[in-house]
Design a protein around this nucleic acid. Structure first.
Lengths: 211, 211, 211, 211
DNA sequence: CATGAATGAGTATTCATTCAT
DNA sequence: CATGAATGAATACTCATTCAT
């Protein structure tokens, strides 16, 4: 029964916003549709005009929020380009960390609610496109720098799993150390993995760009 | 007196086993206590003689199952000792992977239900002791090989986060590749991270403590 | 809009009526919410749209029923005014007795369920206002008759405790005698207590009775 | 699981004592047999060796506790005899008040749990005998003082109802005043009621029992 | 579009009571 | 006598979903 919440105009947005708050506070399982509509200041029936059920709402929420993080990281990367593939990648990672460190609730939310099934469906939507984009840009950078990667997909996968796991622990729990303390080690680990996957192309003269 | 004690332990074991099965099949949220006791063939009230509630049951389950994996890996490691710290660690990881690849349900269960709060409480129990043990053994190995690690704790943290994230994806979803395909890359990544954290001690005799 | 409001009030009334019946028949503790809604012909959930729980329902019931008795006694008193404070008070008491003798279930219900805590909260609501009214009227009567009461509050308290205790025994159990038999003794006792608390104002000459 | 509570010897007494405490603290309805035996440090089954059920236990408790109060008042009265029937009665009342003011828990317990049905059954047991005793003593006192009471039973009934109602309010709730403040008014009311029921016998010789 | 009253299946939890040991 | 594990009926309460207005 809070406000009338920008009445009319944008009920869907209001429901998304309210439910994000409640899911973060009380968790998904303990948040009822009743709670959401009461907080959003509308009637129960209205919920079903916009979402199929609670799960539908959650999934839309995860997609929007994840997309938002990735977009922000992309934009930040474009506005401040780095020299060299390795540095670019690390800058990208730092943007994501910075973004989620500012919005810990979002981090917790994404981590809690990002199920495998949903993740795959996201990969075929806008997020997938964005990530394809990222991969392509990586390839370009590496080509420009004459770097050969044994398996780009798996390298990104490895790096992303490392990032998401450690980020969650350090940012949210400060366990085993805070993100600030961990960051140099993370950077080193990332560089080490990149080196493990990549090698520089042999001499320019002998190998004139893959004949 | 013995008969009765035995019977109790059977009851508890039966509840744990049944609920593990149901949680794995239908998920924790969609499994009711009714389901569990019906499947286990006992009265509802009996459940409450052994567990405080569904959450208590789940936590005990996670602890038992996790402990089991770690113990198995420890035993396997002891029975087949490896040469060198790096190889030892990789063998340890391989044991865990092997163990969870055989029991995917267990992997899914642990990953789904291992919340941060529970994890920390586990670290103060038997599992914590086992992991302390592991760390100590690492230290001994490294000392014996004159390897200096910049931060052993954070190295193990990094390696474990990498392992658990990739393991979940590859073993359970086969995404982006199967574990079999990913394994060589994982090994390389592990070695790379270890190298990033460690360096060999300078000359044996002279070694004037970092000149 | 009106139809719906009306329907709601009917539902609430139906629950109150049904539960009063059941509480009277089987007692509060042995009446379940299931019983009530079954008897009232509605769904379980509907109950919780109108009352917080069984205790809330009971309290609302006690308040309504008590108010009803007091209101009736007030109305009866106004329609048949008596001469003199003492007679007025006795007439008031007789109205209450008459009213509860006709509705023994109500008497039993009020007596059983009127806890101290609820009683006090009632005293701050409509019932309190009604009783304040009664006290004020008593004061006026007494002033008009030049009667001085050493402590009006305590007198009414004393009389009411006497009334409620004896009423319950005599009307409901016929113990030690029926109300009919006891009534003259009750009247005498009331008069005696009033005399014990009050005395007539001194001599006419000095204070010529407010001419 | 407290102590072993004077093990063997006196389980019944232990159960009575423990349950009195718990009933007083949490109320009868919210005290379970589990609570009682746990607190008394014995097994559930043991309860049923001594009491039929919770209601049986409560009733025995009420009887014992009530008897105790009456006995104490009787003993106190005998040890400090008063001059005159009226003073005797008031002394008796004061003893009861004093006794219950010291043990408010007991007062609350008796008031909460003394149902009409139980009361009657008590009247046919030891308590009834004690009260008969009291009545007989009253008659003797009055005869000795040449006082004639229009109805001794109803007078005692009236006085007792007045006493119990006001005592509960004043002692336990301090409402509308404390017992200390109320006591003089109570005494006056009692004397007034006694006077209303009794009159002194006219001259001894000339007045041969109401001509 | 929006409402919110009504539903009733479903859930966790309690507890008096029994009975084999 | 004493135990306490086992029972399962019973209870309060929740909540996603529908539908008449």
């Amino acid at each position: 029964m809070k406000r009338v919440e920008l009445n009319k105009e944008n009920k869907r947005a209001s429901l998304l916003k309210t439910s994000f708050q409640l899911f973060s506070e009380k968790g998904f399982a303990k948040t009822s549709i009743s709670d959401i509509v009461k907080e959003a200041g509308m009637a129960k029936g209205t919920f079903y005009l916009y979402f199929k059920d609670k799960y539908d709402l959650r999934d839309q929420l995860v997609i929007r929020k994840s997309l938002q993080v990735i977009r922000e990281a992309n934009e930040a990367l474009e506005s401040k380009p780095q020299k060299g593939f390795e540095n670019q990648f690390i800058a990208y990672v730092d943007h994501i960390i910075e973004c989620l460190e500012k919005d810990k609730i979002l981090l917790r939310f994404i981590n809690r609610n990002l199920s495998g099934a949903l993740f795959e469906s996201m990969m075929e939507g806008a997020i997938g496109a964005d990530l394809q984009n990222l991969l392509r840009r990586c390839e370009e950078s590496m080509a420009a720098e004459h770097i050969i990667c044994s398996n780009l997909h798996l390298m990104v996968f490895t790096l992303m799993e490392l990032l998401s796991g450690t980020m969650y622990s350090c940012i949210l729990d400060g366990q085993p150390v805070t993100m600030e303390e961990y960051l140099p080690y993370l950077h080193e680990s990332i560089r080490a993995i990149i080196h493990a996957f990549c090698r520089e192309q042999a001499e320019d003269t002998e190998n004139p760009a893959e004949p």
